[in-house]
Design a protein around this nucleic acid. Structure first.
Length: 933
RNA sequence: GGGCAAUUAGCUCAGUUGGUUAGAGCGUCUCGUUUACACCGAGAAGGUCAUAGGUUCGAAUCCUAUAUUGCCCACCA
């Protein structure tokens, strides 16, 4: 492959990106089983695994996903180059409620009024699957556009057959261990989604509500306050604090209110409860066991009656009386209030702020209603099988909560940033049993069957068994004598109780599982569990789980729960949490605000590399970050800068380096060479460390600073002056491309291929190591001296408005540094644009020269009368003042015995050096100032 | 109501265990078509690190209050 020396002047990402991705993919190197011949072959290659947090198949990826992909690809590419056996495993999530809701909406827009009813379960699911497939394809394409080096051969879906088997297997195991149970209790119900929600799927929105204070009837002795008068039709008690002198005497009494609010009769028992706040409202609470979690607790404690007055559609039930039956809650509220007013029962109506519970998927108000549902018991103790958990023995009695808490407390799982560990612990402490059944069709159907034969032989107890539109809602069946349903991984052939083998009599629970049940298994279900696969053995526990802090509870905690329970092991060693991507004003990006940055647009306009950099740099772990188009454009500029640096180096290189096994000759290096190499080494070291420590932004910033401010601004310019640098420039460029590759894979790979052809891919090159055995501290200082001289002269030129093209003469009085300056005078002359440079040991000020202080040297510039003496005086005076101030501060500091005695000697020594430097400088400045006068 | 965070240059943010005369990018100003790059180069201006106390030889950094902002959790009816 001949070297192309004519690279285009500007880097145009769209000309290369797709081609490069295809080349990567075709190479097979995304798959860790495909080996690469490495310079250093590590037979014991360490596995490094990340599972991709599966994006929901509800649509397309947003910029937050792009950030996730950028960070994970960075880690993946870094570890791959380091020689680890690196797997980044892709997949998508069926996102049950979200996807079903979305498809329903789309079908309604298409003109189907009630999609579920009109299509039926099977046809409706066909529609959902079609949508999910299309969405999946878009997502995969977007991942590729971002340059994600995912191993597509292992792709998984939370609802595919292998994952379904994992779900069924875990369900059965949990049921057998007594951790899954079916119970009748208050659940969060979304009347719009027609399903239960887990506690953490409920969001809270602050609102101003009306608080009504009233009595049930004229004869009732206690007034109560409520924001939901319509629920009072289901009240069965009034709770007061037993220490409350006003009401204590009533505790234990029962009152009957005839035809409350023209609805129904109420039987109210007065109970004492310590949780009632004497100072809020009237100090008395109407207890509605069926529609309040708190009241439900009182119901259990006090053996009250439970009357359900709101149904699954958010409408009043028959129990509320026939005047209310079928009314939406808001209308019922109005009606109750009207009654209270009309009968003089309302004592007060005031505005209070409280929080409204809403569904996190659709925003609709949640109703707490009693319902029979499946739950996971998080407090029940069970014997843990094989334990690889720190501090928990095999066979030990533990609860799921114990497991979740222990692995983080013990440090076996590290959460980054650390503060999220606290949030996590707090959440676990407040965790209640997890309601896992959902009354929707899209998802893993619960692996439970009921035998109709057994149920027919009922003992007279009736209950509504199932929910759901399509299921016969009037199906009222008896409780089986044997209370246990049939829980099985696969459809049972016969009923173990009555032995009937008629499959038609065995009906499966129509409900599906919470989507997080299946995503909780993600780290091991994707690796083939419940089969004992090589993948599972090799890649589990995974190394890092990288995700947004917004799903710490939903997902991260659930994975910890499931994995510790099922495998007795942790799902991942580290959790790295990134923040949200916001717009330039700090607002959330949303379609309605029109402030969305679509990653695909950004890639099309600025390239995938620039898009990635804008998401990787300038932020810190766990903190939200603001993104603007200007920021992305800035990084586009940088990719172009790198391109042009490479263009320059390649164009000036005579070396046809086909194998890149470049042996740098460390002898015969100039000062600048030593400097840049030691800076490069330091950069390699810093960048590696930063990446290992999850400081991706810091890593990228250091790399950028090296690339732009040191390599481009200084060394490349020096290389033009000193010449004969092909070898070292090649070395630097190659190393630099490797370092940048995890951040911006496309442009680096493209440059690499311009140098070596397409047969050798940068993606699988070895991560660079250090070349200079020891850091040459002296070289660094010496080079800094040269830099300082050049900047000082440049600055003086600018201050005195010397034309950039006009060359001037300079004399440097250098003392001990004379030799150094003579050796590097070409650099100084070139970069400071000098005609003639004279270096002397002793200061002799030429005629018409302006004098500058530069460290412990003096510089005289022949500006041929261009100097503005007055301006120069002002400048010098300012500098004298600043230096004087500093000298004073340092003098005081060093005169302070306590500082000298207490501070570490190294610090004191450093301060002394600073002072003496400053004093030398001050003397010279003052002399110069005096000379001007 | 409880908890967590943030408050540093005009803007966006760094500042890793207390030892800096407090940094970067963008923006601003001045100058510039030097054959890698105007998606560029050179130079410059700009901050009493929210406020008030305290600890310390030494505080942007640790502690205590206060203010403002954001987020999370929570059954005050």
């Amino acid at each position: 492959m001949p070297m192309s020396k004519e690279l285009p002047k500007a880097y145009e990402p769209q000309n290369y990106e797709d081609v490069i991705y295809k080349r990567w993919e075709d190479s097979g190197f995304f798959n860790p089983d495909v080996c690469v011949e490495k310079d250093v072959t590590d037979v014991n290659a360490k596995p490094f695994t990340i599972v991709l947090p599966p994006p929901n198949v509800t649509g397309t990826l947003h910029i937050g996903h792009a950030m996730m992909l950028a960070i994970e690809d960075l880690m993946t590419r870094y570890h791959r180059m380091k020689g680890d056996k690196t797997l980044w495993l892709p997949g998508t999530d069926h996102a049950a409620i979200a996807t079903q809701t979305k498809v329903e909406k789309l079908l309604i827009e298409k003109g189907i009024k009630d999609p579920k009813k009109e299509l039926g379960r099977e046809k409706f699911l066909d529609e959902v699957n079609k949508f999910a497939q299309a969405s999946h394809d878009t997502i995969v394409n977007q991942c590729k556009k971002m340059g994600s080096s995912l191993d597509w051969s292992r792709e998984a879906f939370t609802l595919d057959e292998p994952r379904n088997l994992a779900v069924r297997t875990v369900f059965k195991k949990m049921y057998d261990d007594g951790l899954i149970y079916r119970g009748y209790r208050i659940v969060n119900w979304c009347p719009r989604c027609h399903s239960t929600l887990a506690d953490d799927e409920v969001e809270h929105k602050d609102q101003i509500a009306k608080l009504y204070t009233f009595k049930y009837s004229k004869d009732f002795p206690i007034a109560i306050a409520t924001t939901r008068p319509e629920t009072k039709l289901g009240d069965t008690a009034v709770a007061v604090n037993s220490t409350d002198k006003r009401y204590a005497k009533y505790i234990g009494q029962e009152f009957v209110i005839k035809n409350f609010a023209n609805g129904t009769d109420l039987k109210i028992k007065i109970i004492g409860d310590e949780n009632v706040d004497v100072n809020f409202g009237t100090g008395a609470v109407g207890v509605t066991p069926a529609h309040s979690f708190a009241d439900y607790e009182m119901y259990l404690k006090n053996n009250l009656e439970l009357i359900s007055v709101i149904d699954e559609d958010g409408k009043m039930t028959a129990s509320a009386g026939k005047n209310y039956q079928g009314l939406p809650v808001k209308e019922a509220r109005t009606k109750v209030v009207e009654h209270l007013v009309a009968n003089g029962l309302l004592e007060k109506e005031e505005d209070v702020s409280n929080s409204l519970s809403i569904c996190y998927r659709c925003g609709y108000a949640i109703e707490p209603i009693p319902s029979k549902q499946w739950f996971i018991d998080v407090n029940k103790k069970f014997a843990l099988g094989d334990s690889k958990l720190n501090g928990i023995k095999t066979g030990q009695q533990v609860s799921l909560k114990d497991l979740m808490r222990q692995v983080v407390d013990s440090g076996q799982i590290e959460i980054i940033p650390e503060r999220f560990s606290k949030t996590y612990s707090h959440w676990i402490n407040n965790l209640r049993d997890w309601c896992i059944s959902r009354q929707i069709w899209y998802g893993h159907q619960i692996p439970v069957w009921y035998c109709l034969m057994c149920m027919d032989k009922n003992n007279g107890i009736k209950e509504v068994l199932f929910h759901g539109e399509n299921f016969d809602r009037t199906l009222v069946v008896g409780k089986r004598n044997s209370a246990d349903p049939i829980v099985s991984v696969n459809q049972p052939d016969e009923c173990p109780t009555c032995n009937c083998a008629d499959r038609a009599k065995l009906i499966q629970d129509p409900d599906t599982l919470d989507t997080w049940f299946s995503s909780g298994l993600w780290t091991f279900s994707t690796l083939g569990w419940p089969e004992k696969t090589v993948d599972l053995q090799t890649f589990h526990p995974t190394s890092v789980l990288e995700t947004g802090y917004d799903i710490l509870f939903f997902w991260v905690a659930r994975m910890v729960l499931m994995t510790t329970y099922v495998l007795g092991d942790i799902p991942f060693e580290k959790v790295y949490m990134h923040g949200l991507v916001r717009d330039e004003q700090g607002r959330k990006m949303s379609k309605s605000l029109g402030n969305v940055i679509d990653p695909l647009d950004s890639i099309a306009k600025y390239g995938a590399d620039a898009t990635r950099l804008s998401l990787l740099l300038g932020n810190t772990p766990g903190n939200d970050t603001r993104l603007s188009e200007e920021k992305i454009a800035g990084f586009r500029n940088f990719t172009n800068k790198l391109w042009n640096m490479a263009r320059f180096i390649i164009a000036n290189s005579k070396i046809k380096n086909q194998n890149s096994k470049l042996q740098l000759k460390i002898q015969n290096l100039t000062l600048a060479d030593k400097w840049i190499l030691s800076r490069l080494d330091a950069t390699v070291k810093d960048v590696s460390e930063n990446i290992e420590n999850f400081q991706f932004s810091a890593a990228g910033e250091k790399l950028r600073d090296f690339t732009w401010s040191e390599l481009a601004d200084w060394y490349l310019e020096i290389a033009k002056i000193e010449g004969d640098k092909e070898e070292i420039l090649q070395y630097i460029l190659q190393t630099l491309l490797k370092l940048w590759h995890p951040f911006m894979p496309f442009v680096t790979e493209q440059i690499w291929s311009e140098m070596f052809g397409i047969d050798r891919m940068l993606m699988v090159e070895s991560w660079p190591h250090l070349v200079i055995p020891t850091v040459v501290e002296e070289s660094l200082n010496d080079f800094n001296t040269i830099q300082l001289i050049i900047t000082t002269i440049r600055s003086a030129r600018a201050d005195n408005k010397i034309e950039p093209n006009k060359k001037i003469d300079a004399t440097i009085s250098a003392g001990a540094k004379e030799k150094l300056l003579i050796e590097n005078s070409a650099i100084i002359t070139g970069l400071a644009r000098l005609e003639k440079l004279t270096i002397e040991k002793k200061a002799v000020k030429p005629e018409n020269a302006v004098a500058l202080v530069c460290g412990d040297m003096e510089i005289y510039l022949d500006l041929s009368g261009a100097v503005d003496i007055e301006k120069e005086k002002v400048r010098l005076t300012k500098e004298v003042e600043a230096t004087e101030k500093f000298v004073t501060i340092m003098n005081n500091k060093l005169a302070n015995a306590e500082f000298v005695n207490n501070a570490p000697p190294a610090v004191v020594e450093k301060e002394k050096q600073k002072l003496s430097d400053a004093q030398t400088k001050l003397e010279k400045l003052q002399t110069q100032l005096n000379n001007l006068k």
